[in-house]
Write a protein that binds this DNA or RNA. Structure first.
Lengths: 73, 73
DNA sequence: CAATATTAAGGCAAATTTGCCTTAACTCAA
DNA sequence: TTGAGTTAAGGCAAATTTGCCTTAATATTG
């Protein structure tokens, strides 16, 4: 029972996280700390390896001072 | 190692899925079929039990003919 | 009321994510 | 070059989600 996995959705999130993180001059580790998640997850998310949860999307958006929706468009 | 779980994010998704589904006159089962996911997942998502993935958010939005971002605002 | 449709609830195994860890590769300033 | 900082890569156990299933509860329609 493989999980639903939308490469396009995952890539959109990956690109946006990286874009906004760089724009704020944050390292992956700094972003992870601000978001309250593991540093290696940020790396995996940005590389498009993870079909992560909406809670993580909200946490990342919060850490980046943007709206969650901005990470999905 | 509990996963990050943002009740507020989960509730927002729950309410939006239900709202748009009802607006389109779809049963949970019909929506699940359109989205390509299990019917019981729709039930659990609408009840706020599941911290689901961005792929599922995109699939639901697609099935509902709305943008993924609309499910998170 | 009776019957049908819809939703809630929960169990289970398998798949996936998460957090924690280590190591290698790469960048860049001194 | 050297060293510090950052990122990539991957392993692992535990937690969570997913799909599949059954049954009960609730709505809705005839």
């Amino acid at each position: 029972m493989p999980q639903l996995r939308d490469i396009s959705a995952i890539s959109i999130l990956a690109g946006n996280v990286r874009k906004y993180r760089i724009a704020k001059n944050l390292s992956q580790e700094a972003l992870a700390n601000l978001a309250g998640i593991e540093y290696s997850q940020v790396s995996r998310i940005e590389r498009g390896l993870l079909n992560t949860s909406i809670s993580v999307v909200f946490a990342l958006a919060n850490a980046l001072n943007i709206k969650p929706t901005q990470l999905l468009e």
